[in-house]
Design a protein around this nucleic acid. Structure first.
Lengths: 229, 229
DNA sequence: ACTGTGTGTTACCGGTCAGTAACTTATCGC
DNA sequence: GCGATAAGTTACTGACCGGTAACACACAGT
C-alpha cells in the first residue's frame, strides 16, 4: 500500500491562554474529534491510525484512549457529529423557502451542488464510510443507515409537499441523484456529471408535479422548465 | 478496528489433475487474481492483505510477489479485469435492442437494477475502490477514472442516439442515477431507492425525447410512461 | 541426464496497527 | 496548601502490514 497519510505537520494548538477571560481552551476530546473529522474525511477510515489522529490533535495515544473506548467508537462518534452538521446544513438550505416545497428542493440541490463541487470535497462522509465498513455489526453502520434512511424520508416528504403524483418515487429518484453526485465527485474533478444535478431536479419536478395553473396553496410562479430546446 | 476479513477457510484448489488431457490447471497468477477479485469486492482494498489473498488462493506470499510487483499493482490489475467484465456485461445487456437506443437504455437499467439489487452485491467495484484511493498517483486511480469517463461517454452517446434534446444532460443524469444506485446499495438492504431506477429512467427519457408520433427511423412503439397517476 | 521454469517453504526485515501500564505534570476548586 | 481531575510522557505488547532472501522441489523440453 502507498504512504497514505502525509505527515500533515500541524502546529498543534496545545495549551491556549485562558487565564484571563472567556477563552475556554478546547478540551482534548474536542480537538481529537475535530482532527478525526478532517482526517477521516480526507484519507478514509482505515487509512488513518489513532496515533496519527492523536498527534495531529496535539496530544497522544494515551489521552486518546481516555476519551474514546476504541477507534471504532471514535468512528461512530465522528459519524454522529457529521450527521448533526449535515442536518444543520440541510435545514439552513431549505429554510428560506418554507412553505414552498418545490423551491425548497431546488434550493437544496443548488446548495448541494456548489458544496459538493468545491475543491476539497470528497463526497459524502457517510457514503464513503459505508464502503469501508462492510461488517454488519460495526457501531458506525447503524449511524450511517439511520442517516441515509432519514435522508430518504425527508426527500420523500418534500416531494409529497411539493404535490408530486408519486412522492415516494420522486423522493427516491432525488435520493439516487444526490448519492450519485456524491460518488461521482470522487472520480471526476470539477466538470463531472454532478453539474447537471440542478437541471435534472427541475426536469423531474416538472415531470412529477401536475401543472395546475391555479392550484390552491400553490405558489404563484411555478415555472415549467423544459430540458433544453 | 474490527476483525475485518473472516478466516474464509477455503479448500484451496491447489494442484488439479492435469496429466491426462486438456485440463490446464489454473496458473498461480490467475488463482490470485480471482481470489483478489472476490475478496477486494467483499471486504475492500485496504481490509485485505496480500498474505490473506495468497493463502486463500492456495499459495503463499512469495509466489504472489513473483506474479505481481506490489499490492498496488494487483489492485490496478484487479480493476482492469473488473473493467473488462463490466463492458462485456454492458454490451450483452444492450445487444438485444441494437438500433433502438431508448430500449437499450431501458434494458441496461433493468439489467443493472436486478444485478445491483442481488444479495451479495456491494455496489460498484470502481466506486468503492476510489473511496479507498484518495492518493492522486495510485496506479488504480487512472483505471477508475478512465472507466467512469467511459461510462459517462457511453450514456451520453446512447442519449444522443435516443434523440434527446440535450443528450449530454440526459446522459449525465442517467450517470448520476446509476452511481446513486450503486452507492445507496451499501446503506439499504433490498428495498432501497435503487428500486425506482427503472421508473426514473423512463420518466427522464420521456422528458428529454421529443414525442414525435411518426418520426423517421424511430421505433413504432415508443410509449409514454407517465410517473404514476 | 541436464537445465530452466514455476512453485512451495521457512524465516526474516522494518514499520505500523490498536490498545495498555505506570508515572509525571499542570490546572482546577476549595 | 490540598486534593481532585485532566492531560502529557515513555515504554511496552502482540499482531499484522508490505516486501524480501535463501533454499527445496517437481516437472517440462531437449
Amino acid at each position: 500500500m502507498k504512504s497514505t497519510t502525509p505527515p500533515e505537520t500541524g502546529p498543534a494548538p496545545g495549551v491556549a491562554a485562558h487565564g484571563g477571560g472567556a477563552a475556554p481552551k478546547p478540551r482534548v476530546r474536542d480537538r481529537i474529534l475535530d482532527t478525526a473529522r478532517s482526517m477521516f474525511y480526507r484519507y478514509g477510515l482505515r487509512a488513518v491510525g489513532v496515533d496519527a489522529i492523536a498527534s495531529e490533535a496535539g496530544t497522544n495515544k494515551m489521552s486518546f484512549y481516555r476519551c474514546f473506548d476504541s477507534k471504532d467508537e471514535l468512528i461512530a462518534e465522528y459519524l454522529r457529529e457529521q450527521g448533526q452538521a449535515y442536518w444543520a446544513w440541510w435545514d439552513a438550505a431549505i429554510a428560506p423557502h418554507a412553505g414552498d416545497a418545490r423551491r425548497q428542493l431546488e434550493a437544496l440541490f443548488d446548495n448541494y451542488m456548489s458544496l459538493t463541487g468545491k475543491d476539497g470535497s470528497r463526497g459524502c462522509s457517510f457514503g464513503n464510510a459505508v464502503v469501508e465498513l462492510p461488517e454488519g455489526d460495526h457501531p458506525g453502520r447503524r449511524v450511517i443507515e439511520a442517516h441515509k434512511a432519514e435522508m430518504r424520508s425527508r426527500l420523500r416528504r418534500l416531494s409529497a409537499e411539493a404535490g408530486a403524483r408519486d412522492a415516494e418515487a420522486l423522493g427516491d429518484t432525488l435520493m439516487l441523484l444526490m448519492e450519485g453526485g456524491y460518488l461521482s465527485r470522487l472520480s471526476f474533478q470539477s466538470q463531472g456529471p454532478l453539474t447537471v444535478a440542478g437541471k435534472a431536479v427541475r426536469t423531474l419536478l416538472d415531470a412529477h408535479i401536475p401543472a395546475l395553473a391555479a392550484d390552491a396553496a400553490a405558489p404563484a410562479r411555478r415555472r415549467r422548465t423544459a430540458p433544453a430546446g
